Computed example of a mutant assay.
Amino acid sequence: MRSDGATIDGATIDAPLVRALLSEQFPAWAALPLRPVDEGGNDHRMFRLGDALSVRLPSAPGYVPQVEKEQSWLPRLAATVPLPIPTVVGAGRASARFSAPWSVYGWLEGEPAWSAAIDDPERFAADLARFLVALRGADTAGAPAPGPHSAFRGGPLEHWDDEMRDLLLRVEGSERDGAAGIWRDALAAPHTGPTTWFHGDVSTHNLLVRDGELSAVIDFGCSGVGDTACDTVIVWTHLHGAARGVYRRELEVDDATWARGRGWAIWKALIMLDSRWPAQVALARRVLERLLDER
């Protein structure tokens, strides 16, 4: 596969390759212990480097633009948000060994929220919402609009309308009617306000927890400046009980944004219904049930 001149096969990204890249470009770190991170994500491969660093490489050509975006924008966003985000400490360049840019980050301690014990879910929801509100306030001058780099998160839902017609065939009867209605409502509530920063992938894999509290937000690969409705989806995927109401209140977005958020959520749920992973199918069923119960 090729994109922007890069040829990348994620299956070949391993510790020996990373060690060679470090020796070539950052020799001071090349002798540090190196091990893969199991929960490093799908779009990138991650390795822990010593105790204080990590190395992150795009796993396919389509993810290459995310690297330079993070290298450019994370330092600027860090001053705006109330929680730690990844810090770029080394910008690796494309070379004969690896034909794309890559990054060395400071290591952020914490356990992904999907597996962590959260002491106060309502506080967790409030802290997350306040982080996203602060992110929306970051300077947008020259920032990236939605596009392939963000998997079109932050853009108009119409981009997925053709695909959605096929996805709706994965459910039947009242479920299909309800899902189609949610999608119609989302398309009927277009984004008309100012464009602001969005994270684009607010999932429990990208939220770190320490001592029972939200401690950091990671993976800004799908971020950009556009419509923040995509950042509402966690209210259906992972928040429960009173925490859902706290998140809705603290996020401070209008009804049209929530309608588009339901569109994003139903689109993603229908995709996951066909997953080969039983846990994802179960999550998709829960999200679908929640969305349909709200109608």
Rank of each mutant, 00 (worst) to 15 (best):
Q280C: 12
W264L: 04
P144E: 05
E250M: 13
A269K: 07
F26W: 11
L57I: 09
F220R: 01
R123M: 08
P36G: 04
D51R: 13
D119H: 10
A188Y: 04
D255E: 15
Y247R: 11
T195N: 12
V171G: 10
R295V: 14
G200A: 05
L57K: 04
M46V: 15
A134I: 07
M1Y: 12
R48S: 13
D274R: 15
L214G: 11
V67H: 00
L291V: 09
A60P: 01
L57C: 06
R249D: 09
R184E: 15
A116N: 05
D211A: 15
I271F: 02
L22N: 05
E158Y: 11
I85D: 01
A11W: 03
T140S: 05
R295I: 14
A282V: 11
P82E: 05
L283T: 12
V55R: 02
A269F: 03
I182L: 15
W264S: 07
S103P: 10
A179N: 08
V281P: 01
I271R: 09
A125S: 12
G261W: 00
L283I: 02
V37K: 00
R48E: 12
S174T: 15
L157I: 10
S115L: 00
E163R: 13
G41L: 03
R93N: 00
L108V: 01
V233R: 00
L169K: 15
G40T: 04
L157M: 10
P61D: 02
R19N: 10
D120L: 06
R56H: 02
L135W: 02
A188C: 06
H149V: 06
R286P: 00
G241E: 13
P82G: 09
V233S: 02
S203G: 07
P86L: 06
E213D: 12
A30E: 10
P156A: 09
A31T: 15
Q66Y: 05
R19A: 13
A60S: 11
V67K: 00
S150H: 02
A138W: 01
G106F: 01
T192I: 11
L168A: 07
L77Q: 04
L49C: 08
V202E: 05
A15L: 13
R286D: 12
P84W: 04
W29S: 14
G90Q: 11
I218A: 02
F131I: 03
G173D: 09
S3W: 09
A129G: 08
V253E: 03
A143P: 04
P65Q: 04
S99H: 08
V281K: 11
A259I: 12
T140N: 05
Q66D: 03
A151I: 03
F124Y: 15
L128S: 03
A125R: 06
A256C: 10
V88Q: 06
R45Y: 04
D211M: 05
V18H: 02
A116I: 06
G181H: 10
A60V: 07
R176Q: 15
V171I: 14
Q280P: 01
T80H: 11
G193K: 13
L49D: 01
D293E: 14
D14P: 07
T80W: 06
P61G: 15
